[in-house]
């Protein structure tokens, strides 16, 4: 470990910080009378999912740390720790996060892990805690391995990964409408991320960014929040339960049911695991692209508006 790399475990102070900010939001919304909504069972389920995720990820952290140390040892160049390598690692992690997040939404195996985060019909700070318990099994962490191969120390990678996650906490709120224009242009904000959590057809599969919204703008997945189309949060098929075990496992159960149907081709079984969510062999379900197309058939005047350029 580089000598001057601070030994910071961001997760130790993230928990209390989250609790304080949630408390502030709960009271602030009540006092203001607008800017979000809370529901006790929903909030409890979200926070329980967060606690479960932290425990599970702590366990898998041992394995991922070993993998990153192995990759780092293969790196021909070991980078020192300084302000520049910290900034480079932070930006590169966020770039990798964009693709990890896009994979979570565009492959059902990734979605099965990530759907937990989108399963609330509310959008408040507790929603940020509704995190996956199976992120490790999604395999997405391999997209961060190039950082270790580039010579960034695994402890630095863990630090920027933790900071990235902490940044993503604050924008899960309706309490903040818009940030200053320059900030909205570069950074991920509550407005941009509300779009990401919405199930309105125009907002599906948009705004995958973690910290910098510029990745979405670069790779054509950015959709601005429109006043004329308020975000409607949750899943296309909302869950009928608050049971954390069912929230965590429902998409895996769905995958299993689909791929064990009789008389399927092997290619179809493969697609039930890895094709975009909503794909099916008999046309009985819709993918996000098909939902957008169906919406445009009903509302042709919306063709060409943000999120509906198909």
């Amino acid at each position: 470990m580089p000598e001057n790399l601070p030994d910071i475990d961001v997760s130790t102070w993230a928990g209390p910080l989250y609790i304080v900010l949630i408390l502030i939001e709960i009271i602030a919304i009540k006092l203001r009378g607008k800017g979000g909504q809370y529901e006790a069972k929903d909030a409890a389920a979200s926070m329980f999912m967060g606690a479960g995720s932290a425990m599970v990820n702590a366990a898998y952290g041992v394995i991922t740390a070993a993998i990153f140390i192995f990759a780092y040892n293969l790196a021909p160049l070991k980078l020192p720790f300084n302000l520049w390598t910290f900034l480079a690692a932070f930006i590169l992690w966020d770039f990798a996060y964009y693709w990890v997040h896009r994979y979570y939404h565009r492959s059902r195996w990734g979605w099965a892990a990530h759907v937990i985060h989108h399963s609330s019909q509310h959008y408040n700070l507790t929603t940020a805690l509704r995190q996956s318990w199976t992120g490790f099994w999604s395999g997405a962490f391999v997209l961060y391995i190039p950082l270790a191969l580039l010579g960034f120390h695994p402890a630095l990678i863990a630090l920027v990964g933790g900071l990235n996650l902490i940044y993503q906490f604050w924008f899960h709120t309706e309490f903040i409408d818009k940030c200053p224009k320059w900030f909205e242009a570069i950074m991920n904000t509550p407005s941009h991320h509300r779009v990401h959590h919405a199930k309105n057809p125009r907002y599906l599969d948009a705004n995958y960014a973690g910290v910098f919204i510029i990745w979405d703008k670069m790779f054509k997945t950015f959709v601005p929040e429109l006043k004329s189309d308020s975000p409607d949060y949750g899943l296309v098929n909302d869950l009928g339960t608050y049971n954390p075990l069912r929230i965590f496992s429902h998409e895996y159960v769905g995958v299993f049911k689909d791929l064990t149907q009789p008389d399927l081709r092997w290619s179809d079984r493969f697609k039930y695991i890895f094709a975009p969510p909503g794909w099916c062999h008999d046309g009985s379900r819709l993918s996000s692209q098909q939902i957008k197309q169906e919406y445009l058939q009903k509302h042709p005047e919306q063709q060409g508006t943000p999120g509906l350029n198909i």
Binding site: G15, I26, K30, Y38, A43, M47
Partner: peptide
């Protein structure tokens, strides 16, 4: 501690909302 915090926050939410 996490469970206690979740329980306390959920009670607060149930009371306020």
């Amino acid at each position: 501690s996490a469970m206690a915090a979740i329980f306390a926050l959920a009670l607060l939410v149930a009371w306020l909302y």
